[in-house]
């Protein structure tokens, strides 16, 4: 008997808790990072090539899921996020292999990145029931009032996931957005989408309600403009615009200005976009940018 013929995975989108192909019927070829310049790229898989309509469907799913997710207790959201880390841990080997071939790095380097990605979920799982204490406070107004400022999620956040860091970077933009009660529509790395699809399978089996995270594989240059101008999107994370051909983040920001979306600009200086260093501990601004502060005045009296 020869070696067993393996069963390969179909890589699909993740919208509203289900795994559809692109409504456009399109797919694109994903290759391993070339071992050396000029080498013939090795075919890995066909990924679904998400469309404008897929992005719109994802916004509908994200909006539908948002009140329930924001309304869950912070303790509950924390447990669900921790569960994601648990499920990722069980898939270490698969993530490590996808990161290794996609990013063209050594097995030990890939293993380290997977560890950091899982640990980052744990870090954000611990934030869910603390962010209101850190970002909110009572205000000592000069009058007979109890006055309290509390943070609330802004709603639906569209995220351009980083192009280079296909798992650690991906986790580092999704987790802060949803930890606080937002729901997300994520456009994955175009050339390295496989860890994003595997992450969506973890999310689907981690008690994360369908629609809380929606992941579209494909070309950010094609999909992002529709998300930037979408009237039912409240926040826009432009981190992943670094390294996308045919995409100017300033144009997306200008388009988002029409509905005054909250914006995370890409790293770098001036018009140049650079991918951040994902290894360092994140600033909480990735969470607080997508929060609104609500201040409530209550009179005191006998």
């Amino acid at each position: 008997m020869g070696a067993r013929l393996d069963v390969r995975k179909t890589y699909k989108l993740y919208i509203g808790g289900t795994f559809p192909r692109s409504e456009s019927g399109r797919s694109y070829e994903v290759f391993a990072a070339p071992a050396r310049a000029g080498a013939t790229p090795r075919f890995l898989a066909n990924a679904a090539q998400g469309s404008r309509k897929d992005a719109r469907d994802a916004v509908v799913a994200a909006r539908a899921a948002q009140p329930g997710w924001a309304g869950a207790t912070a303790y509950n959201r924390g447990q669900v996020l921790y569960r994601v880390a648990e499920v990722m841990e069980g898939r270490r080997a698969q993530f490590a292999e996808e990161v290794r071939v996609g990013e063209g790095i050594s097995p030990s380097r890939a293993d380290s990145l997977v560890s950091q990605a899982i640990d980052r979920w744990v870090w954000y799982a611990g934030w869910t029931d603390k962010i209101a204490q850190v970002a909110g406070n009572p205000n000592p107004v000069a009058g007979p009032f109890f006055n309290l400022s509390v943070p609330e999620p802004c709603g639906v956040v569209a995220i351009l996931a980083p192009q280079e860091s296909s798992l650690l970077g991906l986790v580092s933009v999704i987790a802060p957005a949803i930890a606080t009660g937002n729901t997300a529509v994520v456009v994955s790395s175009k050339d390295r989408p496989l860890p994003a699809v595997t992450l969506s399978e973890c999310l689907a089996t981690s008690d994360v309600p369908g629609g809380v995270v929606n992941i579209i594989t494909g070309d950010a240059a094609e999909i992002a403009p529709w998300l930037a101008s979408h009237r039912d999107v409240n926040g826009l994370d432009l981190t992943g615009s670094a390294g996308v051909e045919g995409l100017a983040w300033g144009e997306l920001e200008a388009s988002a200005a029409e509905t005054l979306k909250l914006i995370v600009r890409p790293g770098g200086a001036g018009a140049r976009a650079e991918e951040p260093d994902w290894a360092i501990e994140p600033a909480i601004s990735r969470m607080t940018t997508f929060l609104e502060t609500k201040t409530v005045w209550h009179p005191k009296g006998r």
């Binding site: 205000n139 000592p140 107004v141 000069a142 009032f145 006055n147 400022s149 005045w297 009179p299």
Partner: peptide, 13 residues
């Protein structure tokens, strides 16, 4: 949000 009051302002708020 003002509960049982309206248009109150304060530098701390």
């Amino acid at each position: 949000v003002w509960a049982n009051t309206f248009n109150q302002f304060d530098p701390t708020s």
